[in-house]
Every structure is written in structure tokens, then in C-alpha cells.
Nucleic acid binder design. Structure first.
Length: 437
RNA sequence: GUGCCUGUAGCUCAAUGGCAGAGCGCCUGACUGUGGCUCAGGAGGUUGUGGGUUCGAAACCCAUCAGGCACCCCA
């Protein structure tokens, strides 16, 4: 073990410049979540190992598990959906359904780290627990559209599909549910490897040539939701489950439209095949074309998962935003918060004799709601103090010198534009606030 | 979990077996009531870490840690 400090693989440290972006993301989400009436929930990152067993399919090997001194097996949560199911089962009597809850925090996955992919990953989960209504599905879609829009994304698309359409596609190709996994994985790669690539992969997986063509014809459908749903309805004729799924999607889309969601931001995407095994109904995820970093969020309806814990069916729809990817993409696109510093204003100290006057002014400005950082060394040249404030990217600096004190004003300098003005001290806070807004 | 690439100053990179460098950044001054621009000077390195080969290693070999790419899978 060398003595050089180093972070753990796949785990990131976020210095203040990065944290300001992350807090901006989280605050934007909370604002939208609460606007839709969702309530906060926090649970431990540690769960009993068996709580996580058998819920997420093959990825179970990615769960971090450890044994306590007492021989008990615990695990770090892999996502916040299974813990939600546990909470709903455990506190059924205290919850009022339908229950809208959100949870923002870290989960842990023992994956190979890569771009946009980490072992400690923050997610923002939103779920509506205890409703089968397609309005609930629609509300989740409206909410995610608001979040991404308010984060400054303009070129994202939410892909919407349904578990029973995916299943129907496999069934019309003559495959049973058990052997369809490879088909799902193949068609989910459609955007990446194209029609020829999917065909190749299907044939290699033992799908008959004719069946492969039928699958391809279905998953390559594009267009307005009504057109795609109509086309799917014809091609999946005779498959009751798929037809019911199409009715459900029509209802969801109808509500989404009524909620005023921009039609350019979502599409019916038959090729979307989400990996988690617990989805039972609509599934969705949002992607941006640039930079290419997979999906920003994923979700869907899972009507049976909570029942595994609760002993009775509690239908639920929800999604998880991937905060790591959102953070990386927002940084790459430069669409983060405009203000890069926490402080709004830097209070200079003119000289040791006048320092106390500046401390008093700083106190006034803080009381008025400004975030104020003060210089600490009154002997330091004003030039150094300004340079420090500028490098910290603090938007404003204030000077309270002998002239100002004598004549009863304060100099306020906008460090971004270089302009400065003399103001009565009572007007300072409002001027800063008005300029920053 | 598999295969491959990368790691040199705070940052971006150069040096292909022979004295470890540049640009930007940083510090000081020109500038005793004001940052960015300019000029002059200065500091900063056990070349990720550990071992090996060699007269000699940043370079070659092994291991390890971290990052990235393609699979796998997913946020």
C-alpha cells in the first residue's frame, strides 16, 4: 500500500465547482418533483442482502455484499426501487395511496467503470405507488420532460414502449418468453448497430430468417405515436396481451398530450427493451444524441415487484434519473448554472482601521439574504483581494473605504462586466439581486 | 467478467535507451483605492506505485493502482 492518497475505483470526489453543478441538478429536480406533489423519502444505502435477491435479474452479481462481524450478510443498494418496495411493504399502514414519492441519493454497482458509468452513482427516483391509472404513467413522462427542459436540454427524446409489445414481437416471431431474452437485447441495440446488425445478431441467436424480418419490420417503425400504434396494432393482430398494451399506450399518450407535453420530445419506440426484469407495463427512457452517453434516465411500470414484499399487488410506475450522466453531459454541453461561485458578493477589507466597518456591512448584506464572502487580511492590497474574488468567479465585489464612509455610500463592482457604481448601502443587496436574477 | 489503449509540473502535452522540456496556469514586481491585458523575474518533478532488465530507464519487461475505448450490461 503506497502512501499516496487516492480515490477508490469508480468512486468520484466532487470539488466545489462540480458540486455546484450537482446541486443545481438536484435542486431543479426537487423543484419539479414537488411541483407535481411528490414527497421526499430517504432510506439507508445498506439493506439486508436477501432483500435485494431475485429482483433485478442477471445484474445481481454486481451488488456489493459484505458480512458483518455477527455473520449477517448486508448489501449496498443497487438502486432505489427495491428499497422503495421494502418501505411500502413495511409501512403499508402509515402510507396513503396513491403515494407519490421521490428519493435522491447514491446507489452502488460493482461494474467496470467507463464514461458515464461509475460504481457509486446518484439517482433521483420518482414513483407513483398504488395506482394502475395510465394518468400516472403520463404524469411521470410529463415530469421527466419538465426536469430535462428545466435543466437546459433541448435535444432529448423520451422513448416509450411497453413490456407486452416487446413480448408480442417475440411471440409473433414464434418465440416463447423464456427464449426471447436474446431477441430483446438484439433489438435494443437497433440505434447502435442498425437493421443489418440486428438481423445478423438475431440470426446468430437462432431466430429463423422469416421471423427476423418480421421482428425488424416491427422495431423499425417510426413516426407520430398514433401512426406507430396503429401499425403495431395491425401487425400484432391476434396477440391479446399486445393489443391490451397498445390500448394502454394510447391512453397514456392521450393524457401526455392533454398535459401539454411537447410532442417533439417523446416517441413510441418498439425497439426499446429495458433490461430490468421487474417491468410489467409501459417502459421509457430518455436519450440525447450529443454527446453519446446512453440513456439519461429509465423507468416504467412494475406492478408486481412491491407485491413480492407486501404480499398483495401494489401497482407502481416510476423512473430513475442518472445524476452522474446528467452531470457529465451538462458539463460537456456547458449548460450548467450561470453562476459558478456560491458567494454572490465579495466584501473587501480596505485597511486594518476600516476592516470592522466592512464586517458590519457584510453582516447587513447577509441579513438581507445575499451570500457574502469577506476578505480575511485587511493588510492585503486591494488588487490582491479583487484578483482573488475574480478567480473565485464571485460576480460582485464591494469596497468600503474612507471616501465611502465619509460620504455615506458603498462602491459596488460587477466583476463580470468591470462596471462599478456608488450606491447607498441600503440599496446594495437589492441591486445585486436584481442584476443576478 | 473479457480484450485493448493511456498515466511525465496545477492543466494540456513534448522528450523512443543517454543532462526531464514547452505552452497555459501559479508566485513576485512594474501598479500604495480595483481583477482580466502587457512586460520582467521566479518557484514548481522520486516521470501513478512497486519490482526487474541495462553501464545508463519517462521509454523495455512483470505486477499493481487509476482513467479511457470496444464487448457484456446498464443510469
Amino acid at each position: 500500500m503506497n502512501n499516496k492518497p487516492q480515490n477508490v475505483k469508480g468512486m468520484r470526489d466532487h470539488l466545489p465547482a462540480a458540486m455546484i453543478v450537482r446541486q443545481h441538478i438536484i435542486e431543479t429536480m426537487r423543484r419539479v418533483f414537488e411541483r407535481y406533489g411528490f414527497e421526499p423519502l430517504q432510506t439507508s444505502i445498506v439493506e439486508h442482502s436477501e432483500t435485494l435477491d431475485g429482483k433485478i435479474g442477471d445484474d445481481e452479481k454486481l451488488i456489493y455484499r459484505f458480512e458483518t462481524e455477527g455473520g449477517r450478510w448486508l448489501a449496498l443498494r443497487y438502486d432505489q426501487t427495491v428499497p422503495l418496495a421494502r418501505v411500502v411493504a413495511q409501512y403499508q399502514g402509515q402510507l396513503i395511496f396513491p403515494w407519490r414519492r421521490y428519493a435522491i441519493g447514491p446507489s452502488y454497482r460493482g461494474e467496470r467503470p467507463a464514461r458515464g458509468r461509475y460504481r457509486e452513482l446518484w439517482q433521483a427516483d420518482v414513483d407513483i405507488v398504488g395506482s394502475r391509472s395510465p394518468v400516472a404513467d403520463a404524469e411521470i413522462i410529463a415530469l421527466l420532460t419538465d426536469v430535462l427542459s428545466e435543466l437546459g436540454f433541448t435535444g432529448f427524446t423520451t422513448l416509450i414502449n411497453h413490456r407486452q409489445i416487446i413480448g408480442g414481437i417475440a411471440r409473433v416471431a414464434g418465440l416463447d418468453d423464456a427464449s426471447a431474452g436474446g431477441v430483446y437485447r438484439a433489438i435494443d441495440k437497433y440505434d447502435k448497430i442498425g437493421a443489418d446488425g440486428v438481423r445478423e445478431e438475431l440470426l446468430r441467436g437462432g431466430v429463423a430468417a422469416e421471423a427476423a424480418e418480421r421482428i425488424l419490420a416491427l422495431v423499425t417503425l417510426k413516426g407520430p405515436p398514433e401512426a406507430v400504434l396503429g401499425e403495431l396494432s395491425e401487425r400484432l393482430m391476434g396477440d391479446d396481451r399486445a393489443q391490451a398494451a397498445l390500448v394502454n399506450l394510447r391512453e397514456i399518450i392521450g393524457s401526455v398530450q392533454a398535459m401539454g407535453v411537447d410532442p417533439a420530445r417523446y416517441t413510441i419506440a418498439p425497439q426499446l427493451a429495458r433490461g430490468l426484469s421487474y417491468y410489467t407495463g409501459a417502459v421509457f427512457e430518455a436519450v440525447v444524441e450529443t454527446p453519446p452517453m446512453g440513456s439519461l434516465l429509465g423507468g416504467g411500470r412494475y406492478d408486481e415487484l412491491i407485491g413480492l414484499f407486501a404480499g398483495r399487488s401494489i401497482p407502481t410506475v416510476g423512473l430513475a434519473f442518472g445524476i452522474e450522466r446528467l452531470h457529465d453531459i451538462i458539463t460537456e454541453l456547458g449548460i450548467g448554472p450561470a453562476q459558478r461561485a456560491i458567494a454572490d458578493l465579495f466584501m473587501t477589507l480596505f485597511n486594518p482601521d476600516l476592516a470592522d466597518a466592512s464586517l458590519g456591512l457584510a453582516n447587513e448584506l447577509r441579513a438581507a439574504g445575499l451570500r457574502v464572502e469577506i476578505a480575511l487580511d485587511a493588510r492585503e492590497k486591494l488588487a490582491k483581494q479583487f484578483q482573488y474574488a475574480d478567480r473565485r468567479a464571485i460576480p460582485f465585489a464591494a469596497v468600503l473605504g474612507p471616501d465611502e464612509l465619509e460620504q455615506g455610500y458603498v462602491v459596488l463592482k460587477d466583476l463580470r462586466s468591470g462596471e462599478q457604481q456608488r450606491l447607498p448601502r441600503a440599496a446594495l443587496a437589492d441591486t445585486v439581486r436584481a442584476t443576478l436574477a
